[in-house]
């Protein structure tokens, strides 16, 4: 992360200076900082609501039930956390919300899942294998119906916007599966290295 941050800032300044866009780059600091806080604050309300509902769900045993239901799949994917970890239920809720394009609800579920994964994590500042896998699955953006894109297409007069649903679903499934496979390969390599060093 250190290198990425360094690269983004330094290269922006150098490239901006070469392009005569230095003023824009400086302005971007201001607008970017403002946007970050705006995003964070716009999350507060919806986050509070879904975290509240999830707290009830946990006390009522709903999360535990979902975890049990998904155990055959999650035991293979998330093999480094206990199979009865509450993280599994949160992960399931996160994917359900994502799949149906409910990004606002998916974020609080995902954060809860991360918190549960963090409890199982030995080094609290470093991402565990399970966390990397979960993040990879999330960044692949699995979604059944790309609602925003369809809305834009319909808005500009595209005749049959729903025809993009099938190809999008196929592409997103490919990206999703490859993220899982790559994460599992990375986990295998990292663990193997750890064994050799230990």
């Amino acid at each position: 992360m250190n290198y990425i941050f360094y690269f983004l800032i330094i290269s922006s300044i150098i490239i901006g200076a070469c392009n005569g866009k230095l003023q824009d780059v400086i302005n971007a600091v201001m607008t970017g900082a403002e946007l970050s806080v705006k995003i964070a604050f716009s999350l507060i309300g919806i986050m509070a609501f879904w975290l509240g509902i999830m707290q009830i769900a946990q006390k009522a045993g709903v999360i535990k039930y979902i975890s049990k239901l998904l155990r055959p799949i999650t035991r293979v994917l998330f093999n480094e956390i206990p199979p009865d970890s509450p993280a599994i239920g949160d992960i399931a809720m996160n994917f359900t919300a994502n799949a149906f394009g409910l990004a606002n609800a998916a974020t609080p579920f995902g954060i809860r899942a991360m918190e549960e994964l963090q409890k199982e994590n030995k080094d609290k500042s470093s991402a565990s294998n399970s966390m990397c896998l979960f993040l990879g699955m999330n960044t692949a953006g699995f979604q059944l119906v790309p609602t925003t894109v369809i809305a834009i297409l319909a808005g500009i007069g595209y005749k049959n916007p729903t025809e993009i649903i099938a190809p999008t679903l196929l592409v997103t499934a490919i990206a999703f599966c490859s993220a899982i496979i790559m994460a599992k390969i990375a986990q295998y390599i990292v663990n193997k290295k750890g064994e050799n060093n230990g």
Partner: peptide
Amino acid sequence: VYFGAVGISKIRYALIIGLLADFIG
């Protein structure tokens, strides 16, 4: 957002996988 919420700064191979998955997409 996800790593920030639990205070993780060492992201290990997470970004590489995310970007590779993007590329495959």
